[in-house]
Design a protein around this nucleic acid. Structure first.
Lengths: 228, 228
DNA sequence: CGGTTCTTTGAGGACCATCAATACGCGTGG
DNA sequence: CCACGCGTATTGATGGTCCTCAAAGAACCG
């Protein structure tokens, strides 16, 4: 890897507080790879030989069973994946594919475990990241089990609204069919759900979603700090 | 806490490999408390002042939103809860209540974080436990999103079958209404689902569930190592 | 033993999936 | 530049799954 790449990686939050020696150990056997869109990086059931970090682009985690596929989550810059499997040296429970051209850093799982046991700062960074992932999944589960599909969509729109700088016209960051899968519904139903949200001031045009009355949408969606 | 209690706690897997000094620090401010059934130990949104460990009995983690409640999971002996919130010093995302008379160990979150940073063996035990919880949640999510309610129930029965020593007559460990909530359905529907599984050799009588033909049930349930 | 909670059963309806067909968007190659 | 082909998005019709409501029966607890 080039010096410049190493410097880029050094700036990732996960490595912010760790020692130079630990960092050197982690990057010695690491890979920095660029992938095209729609490339399967990891298949569920395989062993987790590398901890993955999204450096740029967009990666989808998904799972399949009996011919069905579902999107678990979508990852952007600086997100890790396969962390729990790396720690436990266990098979991946999810598959991963790029949704756009993406750069991914891969750290050998053995090295991650080795440094974890010797550098408390890295151990802390890892456990905080893992806690974040875990809590995100719990939120996701609450969202799925406690809300109707319409409510999930409304809250998704509100979340994007905040992420995109409180703009009233948001751009969907992923394809609608993937959004549908993430929200636990079919593409057809998502289409109809968007229409139904018209009653709460939402208008859709392709990837653009416009919120006419943010208060009205909030009243319907009832966003919650413990879910969203 | 009595010497005997301390000894009991020392034997918990989470503390198996840690140093005596670390253990002393963790238990200095700890509580060992016995609770009756149906007692709310933790309410979502509150700060996570203690890491909890179920020493005996049974604890349910659940969440509420807009008047609805859902069971996230049920915990038994030696399970931890509020681990991620403890690590992040963040509000609990779930509430917890005892389902039966239970003994719970409570370790001050600050002490947990302090020892985590200083004892690599404890750090490793914590991160492995957290990974286990995370992966269990991912499995849960896959179960919910990829399977119908009938399939979820069938796989639940198979899981209990294994947990209870491969016996063909299993005893449901929790009330049916809670099982229904855990499986993402209503009590009425669970009742009907049990009846429907009659077509796959399942008979129900109160808390007793009998599997007539394990192969037939397996063929229908299609259990998967990456979910169950 | 009475009251409460849980479970079951039935009827009806809401929500959501499926299937099928069409429209749209986009990149490729003629 | 346009026609074509492919995958995505939409729309409508239909059916199944699952929820709601209501009521009765069973289990549990004080």
């Amino acid at each position: 890897m080039s010096i410049q790449r190493i410097e880029e990686i050094r700036n990732i939050p996960l490595f912010a507080d760790i020692g130079d020696e630990s960092f050197a150990t982690l990057t010695r056997g690491a890979y920095f790879q660029a992938f095209p869109a729609n490339m399967e990086l990891i298949t569920e059931g395989e062993s987790a030989d590398f901890l993955h970090i999204v450096h740029s682009g967009c990666v989808e985690l998904f799972s399949t069973w009996a011919g069905n596929e579902t999107t678990i989550t979508t990852l952007y810059e600086n997100s890790t994946f396969i962390l729990a499997a790396t720690i436990k040296d266990a098979p991946n429970l999810m598959s991963a594919r790029t949704l756009s051209k993406s750069e991914v850093i891969m750290l050998p799982s053995e090295d991650v475990r080795w440094v974890f046991e010797r550098d408390p700062a890295f151990a802390m960074a890892i456990v905080v990241e893992l806690s974040r992932c875990y809590r995100a999944t719990i939120r996701n589960m609450k969202n799925l089990k406690l809300r109707s599909s319409l409510e999930r969509l409304a809250n998704y729109i509100l979340k994007q609204h905040h992420r995109q700088g409180d703009t009233l016209t948001i751009t969907l960051p992923i394809e609608k069919r993937r959004l549908a899968s993430y929200l636990g519904m079919t593409p057809e139903n998502l289409s109809r759900a968007f229409k139904s949200l018209g009653a709460h001031s939402v208008r859709v045009d392709g990837q653009k979603v416009t919120i006419g009355d943010i208060d009205a949408l909030n009243r319907f969606a009832k966003p919650d700090v413990l879910i969203d």
